[in-house]
C-alpha cells in the first residue's frame, strides 16, 4: 500500500471498519510512515473531540407534549380516528406509528408535571390493579376460565356478560389465549391473557367500561393517565426489566395491556389485523 491508498482509508480506519488483509497492510504502513501515522492520529483525535465535547441534545418533555398535541389536532381536523385501528380493522393509522416513534425517544410518556390531585386509592386504580393482575397471572394464581387457539371463542365467552365491547387480537404468533371475568364494586372487568412460546411470556389485557373509568367513582385512573388518554387516546408506563404497560381506548372500552414484551412488539401484536 502506498501513501495515497492509505490516505483513502483513514476515515474507515478511524471508524474501525477495516478488517483482514487491508487492515494489516494499513497498520504496517502507518507504523513505518510518520506522515500517514500523523494523519490517522489527527482524524482520530477530531472524532473523539466531537464524541466527547458535543453533548447530544435531549428532547424536552414540553416539546414531546406539544408534538403529540399537534398530531392529535391534525387527526381531529381530519376526522380520522386513531384507535378504531386496533383490532380487526384493515387500516393502521399513521398517527399511532408516529406517536410511538416519538414516545420511544423520551423513554416513556412524561408530560409536564401537574399539581397532584387527591390520591386515588390503589384498589380503585386500574393501572395498579392491572399490574397486580399481571403478576398474579404470571404466578398462576389467576387462571383463565376459558382457553382457546381461536380469539373468537374467548371473545364470545366474555362478551355474554358485559355491556362494553370486548377486544381479542388474532392469535397469530401466540400459543393460545384465554379469558375470565370479574367484578369490582359492581363494575364488570374482563381479562384476556395471551401465551407466547417460553415459560414466562404472557401478555395480560384488562378491559372495562371507558366511561366508568373516566368518571372515577368506583374505579379510576391517575391524573396523568387520564390526561394522556383524553389528549391522545393512549397512555404508556414502564418499569425496565419488570413490565411495559400500554393503555388505550377502543370505542367504549378501556384496555390496559401489561407484559414483559417490549412495547413495540406489544403494539404490533395488539394491532395485528390478521391479514
Amino acid at each position: 500500500m502506498n501513501c495515497s491508498q492509505v490516505y483513502e482509508l483513514i476515515s474507515e480506519a478511524v471508524d474501525r471498519r477495516l478488517s483482514g488483509k487491508v487492515r494489516q497492510e494499513f497498520e504496517t504502513h502507518i507504523s513505518i510512515c510518520g506522515q500517514c501515522q500523523a494523519e490517522f492520529t489527527s482524524e482520530e483525535m477530531i472524532k473523539s473531540l466531537i464524541q466527547h465535547r458535543i453533548p447530544r441534545a435531549k428532547m424536552p418533555a414540553e416539546v414531546y407534549s406539544a408534538v403529540v398535541e399537534a398530531l392529535a389536532h391534525e387527526r381531529q381536523s381530519e376526522k380520522r380516528s386513531w384507535f378504531t385501528a386496533f383490532f380487526g380493522q384493515p387500516i393502521f393509522n399513521p398517527a399511532v406509528a408516529l406517536i410511538l416513534i416519538l414516545t420511544i425517544a423520551v423513554g416513556m410518556y412524561s408530560v409536564v408535571k401537574k399539581p397532584l390531585a387527591p390520591k386515588l386509592p390503589n384498589e380503585k386504580n386500574i393501572i395498579s390493579q392491572s399490574i397486580k393482575n399481571y403478576a398474579a397471572v404470571m404466578a398462576g394464581s389467576i387462571k383463565p376460565k376459558i382457553m382457546s387457539h381461536a380469539a373468537d371463542d374467548v371473545k364470545d365467552y366474555l362478551k355474554k356478560d358485559v355491556s362494553f365491547d370486548i377486544s381479542v387480537a388474532p392469535t397469530n404468533g401466540c400459543d393460545w389465549c384465554g379469558g375470565t371475568l370479574s367484578e369490582f364494586d359492581g363494575v364488570k372487568l374482563a381479562h384476556v391473557v395471551y401465551k407466547f412460546g417460553g415459560e414466562q411470556n404472557l401478555l395480560y389485557v384488562s378491559q372495562t367500561d371507558l366511561d366508568e373509568a373516566m368518571k372515577g367513582e368506583k374505579i379510576g385512573l391517575p391524573t396523568d393517565a387520564k390526561d394522556a388518554l383524553e389528549k391522545t387516546g393512549w397512555y404508556f408506563q414502564d418499569k425496565p426489566g419488570k413490565y411495559n404497560l400500554v393503555m388505550w381506548e377502543q370505542k367504549h372500552t378501556l384496555c390496559t395491556a401489561v407484559s414483559k414484551m417490549d412495547r413495540q412488539k406489544m403494539i404490533a401484536f395488539l394491532t395485528d389485523t390478521g391479514e
Binding site: M59, V63, A66, V67, A70, L71, E74, R75, P94, A95, L98, L102
Partner: peptide
C-alpha cells in the same frame, strides 16, 4: 421537529 411529524402524518 413538529413540522417533520406533521408532514410525516400528511
Amino acid at each position: 421537529l413538529q413540522e417533520t411529524y406533521l408532514k410525516a402524518y400528511r
